[in-house]
Design a protein around this nucleic acid. Structure first.
Length: 212
DNA sequence: CCAGACGTTGTT
DNA sequence: GTCTGG
DNA sequence: CCAGACGTTGTT
DNA sequence: GTCTGG
């Protein structure tokens, strides 16, 4: 948490403990910031529920939002204008499909430096349930062999722009939604142990063999 | 005007 | 909530 | 994302 | 095949 507070310049530590296999509908750590306000770390449920949704089942479909259309899609455009966030991670899983087999990879930076994924959030229902979605874009050189999409990983200098820009800066915001340009990511083959969402321990990160 | 949709992923 | 299709 | 379920009736 | 739950 100390590393996260420093990297994201949080005003205070957040309530959070290590996770190894976060599935959609479960809690993720996010960062939000009102214009001119402090950076706040808060937990939200992964899977966006728009304000107009009659029930929460739509969350299963809205775990990702495409950068190419996020500003216009009815499910996302309101959040794109007013409720942008960062989702904190030090790695993510991507599955490579070959026939029936689903080979998971653990994708991370050297040293597992935490990073911020561009996201959107909403508050839903009388209980003000806070939910979020991750924005995806085309894959970069490292991740393309595994899958054609990847999360938008923002450079720390762009955090403020993403979190605080007024809604009329649409083009400026969309320009941030690019693949990781520095291409410093590492992709490790891991065991299919991680394929079971009930498996939630460090064994999920065990490297099977080098990629190359 | 009202009714109905509103999403991504991957696979075919 | 807001847009599209009928 | 993956894993696992996928149904109605009536009865306790 | 497609939906739900985690």
């Amino acid at each position: 948490m100390a590393e996260i507070v420093r990297e994201f310049q949080l005003a205070a530590p957040a309530e959070w403990s290590a996770r190894f296999n976060i599935a959609p509908t479960q809690s993720v750590l996010t960062v939000t910031q009102e214009v001119g306000g402090p950076r706040v770390g808060r937990c939200m449920q992964w899977g966006l529920i728009p304000s107009w949704a009659k029930d929460r089942s739509i969350a299963n479909s809205l775990i990702n939002a495409r950068a190419e259309s996020v500003a216009d899609k009815p499910s996302f455009r309101a959040a794109f204008k007013r409720r942008r966030c960062l989702v904190v991670a030090d790695g993510y899983y991507e599955w490579q499909k070959g026939g029936k087999a689903k080979q998971p990879f653990h994708i991370h930076f050297p040293g597992n430096r935490p990073f911020g994924i561009a996201g959107l959030w909403e508050s839903w229902g009388d209980d003000h349930l806070e939910t979020c979605t991750l924005i995806t874009t085309e894959a970069n050189e490292t991740t393309r062999p595994i899958h054609d999409r990847m999360p938008v990983i923002l450079d720390p200098p762009d955090f403020t722009t993403w979190l605080e820009s007024p809604s009329e800066d649409r083009d400026k915001l969309l320009a941030l939604l690019r693949p990781d340009g520095a291409n410093q990511l590492v992709a490790d083959v891991v065991s299919t142990y991680v394929n079971n969402p009930r498996h939630e321990d460090p064994e999920c990160l065990t490297v099977n063999r080098p990629l190359f």
